[in-house]
């Protein structure tokens, strides 16, 4: 367990790893208005130590707003936000656009973290697999390297909670899978909670414990498989989302048209016998898994 026994840590967090997981973050009935736009509506969120919680939802669903409320960067219009006492948060912003006029190396960037010492910086870079870019210019990094450096900065504060806003932005597909498994490893080694925003449930699937599907309000939540089959999820993500789910879990609880679109209105029961041939034709990449 990584939580150090400084005087600021309450007694119940400084116990061994096999104790009851501590609640890190609790949001209750959070509303947020910007002008006359209703961005969040009665959102509840509960996150425990060692748990990975993923927020998914379409653009404009309020994911980033919710993250900012959790971080304390925004104050909700109504509702309550409880963070555990002396919670140390490691934050990875959605993107880091450093002005090209600012000459900044990765090392100098990491030194900006409060109380960062050289040994910690080297360790954090090693942990996220970015030791080789230590002396590179921040603006010269690839998408994947940049995200890893941002993760390293988040780790420097020895966080109890990692908050990651679209951690795989600007990263290719292979790199995305690598990043998600890195996040899972970090959760295990630091025993911290993780709250992250993602667009792609299909990639987060194996990396997350719980999913909240957000579209201003909580459409559905639960384990990733559960959410992937929820009518609310299918309605929100339609064809693309359903296809993505099919790649990974491939539960045909919903019906497809010839084009591969989900027919969400269709009610299923045991008498339903799906013909999968059209589906496979529409999604050739599924053929191997389907075996039909």
């Amino acid at each position: 367990m990584d939580i150090s026994t400084t005087t600021t840590v309450p007694a119940d967090t400084a116990t061994s790893a096999n104790c009851i997981p501590q609640a890190l973050l609790h949001l209750h009935a959070v509303d947020y208005h910007a002008g006359n736009r209703h961005i969040l509506n009665k959102v509840n969120l509960h996150l425990q130590q060692g748990q990975i919680l993923t927020l998914i939802g379409p653009n404009g669903a309020g994911k980033t707003t919710l993250v900012k409320i959790a971080l304390g960067l925004l104050t909700p219009t109504s509702g309550t936000v409880n963070r555990s006492a002396n919670l140390r948060i490691g934050y990875m912003p959605q993107k880091l656009q450093v002005e090209t006029t600012l000459p900044l190396s990765v090392e100098r960037f990491l030194q900006l973290a409060p109380r960062a010492v050289p040994a910690d910086i080297a360790g954090a870079l090693l942990e996220v697999g970015a030791a080789h870019v230590r002396h590179s210019r921040l603006q010269s990094l690839s998408g994947g390297e940049m995200q890893r450096v941002l993760l390293a900065r988040a780790l420097l504060g020895k966080p109890d909670l990692l908050v990651l806003d679209e951690p795989t932005q600007g990263v290719d597909l292979k790199g995305q899978a690598d990043l998600y498994s890195l996040i899972t490893r970090l959760r295990d080694s630091h025993n911290c909670g993780v709250l992250m925003v993602s667009h792609d449930l299909h990639l987060v699937m194996s990396a997350t414990d719980e999913v909240i599907c957000l579209n201003q309000h909580v459409c559905c939540h639960g384990h990733p498989e559960q959410v992937g089959n929820d009518p609310a999820y299918l309605e929100l993500f339609g064809q693309a989302g359903a296809r993505a789910m099919a790649v990974y879990t491939h539960h045909h609880y919903h019906e497809h048209t010839l084009a591969g679109e989900v027919v969400a209105e269709h009610v299923h029961d045991d008498s339903c016998q799906h013909e999968h041939a059209p589906h496979v034709l529409a999604n050739p990449q599924l053929r191997g898994k389907d075996g039909q």
């Binding site: 971080l71 960067l73 934050y91 912003p93 908050v163």
Partner: peptide
């Protein structure tokens, strides 16, 4: 100096880190 620099690079990150 460091605080201003951190704020310049990413204000929200700086704020979460306690500035």
């Amino acid at each position: 100096w460091n605080a201003l620099l951190s704020f310049t690079v990413q204000p929200e990150l700086a704020q979460v880190e306690g500035l």
